[in-house]
């Protein structure tokens, strides 16, 4: 009885309305079954039931429900819109993930070039050391520029769906089908996340391996570590975005204002902490040449910002003010 669902979608979900909906459904079922018994076809029976339904305004007037004013009505999503949204999220995940990977590669490239020229040019003129650093810098900035344009591009693509932040309604059948495809995606998601975690955990191995061969190789190890961790992060971002699309569609309309504020605060803190970490990373690298240990700032920042968001969440839920 999708028809009835759609008729009721604009009404507040009070117990009274729910009860009335059940009553109507029961009455319509009775009528439908009787029409079938009389030998009507399914389509005919449904047609008659719908034509004799009446109009929903009559009920809302009786219940004293104000017809929901236009600016308060939340849009009901269509199948096409949901498809467009999930596709956009998937693409955005891909481009953002790739962008992160490029950023990591950029930094890796810089360290690599720096180390390469330093190791092989000790005997040669001092100039070539600088050349390495300059080339590395150029390479890094080019890669980061490409990455940033990817971020902007995918951000613009997603902008169209900003209205969904304000809330929306899903017809019941669509909700079921999203739930279904979300469940079938869950396994892929889990595998991707586990792979990503493994990559991130294993990536420092390069550093230890390289530095055990030769201290000078430690920088190469750091480069490899950054790229591998970048691949891991790519997996997080890409599959996380697809999963996020499902979560948003199924749970967004239950998101409270408080929760939204919490997300905002956490994001704001992250926006400060991560560039700061990067700045410290680059500074200690160039000024003190400590590429071998300063990479540790990223996992540390990751753990700290993660625990901050958790602690904040717990504090918030403890005293709901």
């Amino acid at each position: 009885m999708v028809y009835l669902e759609n008729m009721f979608v604009s009404l507040p979900k009070t117990p009274e309305v729910e009860h009335l909906k059940q009553e109507l459904l029961s009455g319509m079922e009775d009528k439908y079954l009787e029409l079938k018994r009389e030998g009507k076809s399914e389509n005919e029976a449904i047609g008659i039931v719908i034509s004799e339904f009446g109009n929903i305004e009559e009920l809302t007037a009786e219940l004293g429900i104000q017809p929901v004013s236009p600016e308060e009505t939340v849009p009901v999503l269509t199948e096409e819109e949901i498809y467009a949204y999930t596709t956009a999220k998937r693409n955005a995940g891909f481009w953002i993930g790739l962008g992160v990977l490029l950023c990591a590669s950029g930094v890796a490239f810089l360290i690599f070039m720096d180390a390469l020229f330093e190791n092989y040019a000790i005997s040669a003129a001092n100039r070539s050391v600088e050349t390495g650093a300059v080339m590395g810098l150029i390479g890094m900035f080019v890669l980061i520029a490409i990455a940033v344009s990817m971020f902007i591009y995918s951000g613009m693509k997603l902008e169209r769906f900003n209205y969904m932040e304000k809330g929306f309604q899903l017809p019941y059948t669509l909700k079921m089908s999203i739930q279904h495809s979300g469940e079938s995606f869950a396994l892929t998601y889990r595998i991707a996340i586990i792979t990503g975690v493994c990559l991130c955990i294993l990536s420092p191995v390069f550093i230890f391996a390289a530095s055990s061969i030769n201290d000078n190789y430690a920088s190469y190890g750091v480069s490899a570590f950054m790229v591998m961790a970048g691949v891991g992060v790519f997996l997080f971002v890409y599959y996380g975005n697809i999963q996020g699309a499902y979560t948003n569609l199924l749970e967004k309309h239950q998101l409270t204002v408080e929760k939204k504020q919490e997300v905002k605060v956490v994001r704001a803190v992250e926006a400060i902490v991560w560039p700061l970490a990067t700045a410290i990373f680059l500074f200690t690298g160039f000024v003190y040449q400590r590429w071998d240990i300063n990479w540790a700032i990223f996992p540390i920042t990751g753990i700290l910002s993660g625990s901050f968001s958790n602690v904040y969440h717990i504090m918030k839920s403890k005293n709901p003010s």
């Binding site: 009335l20 004799e52 339904f53 009786e62």
Partner: peptide, 14 residues
Amino acid sequence: YVMKETTLYSAFTR
């Protein structure tokens, strides 16, 4: 005269 579903159930409510 065929009473519409919404008419019937809003009458019950009232």
